[in-house]
Computed example of a mutant assay.
Amino acid sequence: MRLAVRHETRYQFDPPLVHGLQRLRLSPKESHGQSVRAWRMELSGGRVEVSYDDHNANHVTLASVLPGTSELVITCEGVVDTADRAGVVGRHVGRLPLWAFQCQTPRTRPGARLKALSAPLAGQGEDRLAQLHALSQAVLAAVAYAPGHTDVGTTAEEALGAGRGVCQDHAHIFIGAARLLGVPARYVSGYLLIDGRTEQEAGHGWAEAHVDGLGWVGFDVSNGISPDARYVRVASGRDYAEAAPVTGITWGQSASTLSVSLAVEQQAVQQ
């Protein structure tokens, strides 16, 4: 499947910003089942300082905000070819060893609720793939998809307690529980082609777990499936913090407002 993506992130500062730095993980990965045919990034109100691959093999652009900027616009667009591999991404790459993805982070650290959720699955490790699909179903049953009740700082334990959340919360709960079961797991940020809809409010997030003999396998808890050809992988990390599309710091007494415009659509493939 050939997918065209246009993603615009707009920050407005009042008063104008003195200085700022933004870490951008907005360039899709080349991976099994995914080929980036074209991709470009443009900045208005900022400039690229350096680009590099981080410890998770994410493509990262470090951009500075120009002094006195009242509006920073980050525009990314491109075309990505994808294939349905039943969620299987394959072997582990990156500088972090596999065992690092068994270590909990502040966002995934389990409390009593997460331990109770994972406990019934602890004896099902003989069929690891089935165990992880059962975990995905258990997370969705425990936490209804409901925007507006959590934010980027909400932990897995907090979202589980609330019983409501979004894709980020589902992924963090799955990751924390998978690690309790002894399975390396990570967060993935990217894009999803939604049937019958081009314009979207935001990107998407899901989880991946490492299964012996298969490598990394994706689980989109919110949609109850493993990622297929409708998904574009952009970045991954131990939790959302390491895969967030935009993170940064600013100097100066300035309030900011954020708006996002995103379109994902399928293109015809010329034979």
Rank of each mutant, 00 (worst) to 15 (best):
residue 6 R to F: 05
residue 7 H to I: 08
residue 7 H to A: 04
residue 10 R to A: 12
residue 21 L to K: 11
residue 21 L to R: 12
residue 24 L to K: 09
residue 27 S to D: 06
residue 27 S to F: 11
residue 28 P to A: 06
residue 29 K to Q: 15
residue 31 S to K: 12
residue 34 Q to M: 10
residue 43 L to R: 09
residue 45 G to S: 08
residue 47 R to S: 09
residue 50 V to C: 09
residue 53 D to S: 13
residue 56 N to Y: 12
residue 59 H to L: 08
residue 60 V to S: 03
residue 63 A to G: 02
residue 63 A to F: 01
residue 66 L to V: 09
residue 70 S to I: 00
residue 76 C to I: 12
residue 83 A to L: 13
residue 83 A to C: 08
residue 86 A to E: 12
residue 87 G to K: 06
residue 93 V to E: 14
residue 93 V to F: 15
residue 99 W to D: 15
residue 99 W to N: 13
residue 100 A to K: 10
residue 108 T to L: 03
residue 108 T to V: 03
residue 110 P to W: 04
residue 113 R to L: 14
residue 114 L to C: 09
residue 115 K to H: 12
residue 115 K to G: 14
residue 120 P to K: 05
residue 120 P to W: 06
residue 122 A to I: 05
residue 122 A to P: 07
residue 122 A to K: 12
residue 134 A to Q: 13
residue 135 L to P: 05
residue 136 S to T: 00
residue 136 S to W: 08
residue 138 A to Y: 01
residue 138 A to F: 02
residue 143 V to R: 11
residue 151 D to F: 10
residue 152 V to E: 14
residue 159 A to G: 07
residue 162 A to P: 01
residue 162 A to H: 08
residue 164 R to P: 00
residue 164 R to A: 10
residue 165 G to R: 00
residue 165 G to A: 05
residue 171 A to Y: 05
residue 173 I to V: 13
residue 173 I to R: 01
residue 174 F to M: 11
residue 175 I to T: 07
residue 178 A to Q: 07
residue 185 A to I: 06
residue 189 S to E: 04
residue 191 Y to Q: 00
residue 202 A to P: 10
residue 202 A to N: 04
residue 206 W to T: 03
residue 209 A to E: 04
residue 211 V to F: 00
residue 212 D to T: 11
residue 212 D to V: 08
residue 217 V to M: 03
residue 227 P to L: 03
residue 233 R to M: 14
residue 235 A to R: 03
residue 237 G to M: 03
residue 239 D to N: 02
residue 241 A to G: 10
residue 245 P to A: 01
residue 247 T to N: 10
residue 248 G to L: 09
residue 248 G to C: 07
residue 259 S to T: 14
residue 260 V to L: 11
residue 262 L to V: 05
residue 265 E to T: 11
residue 271 Q to L: 15
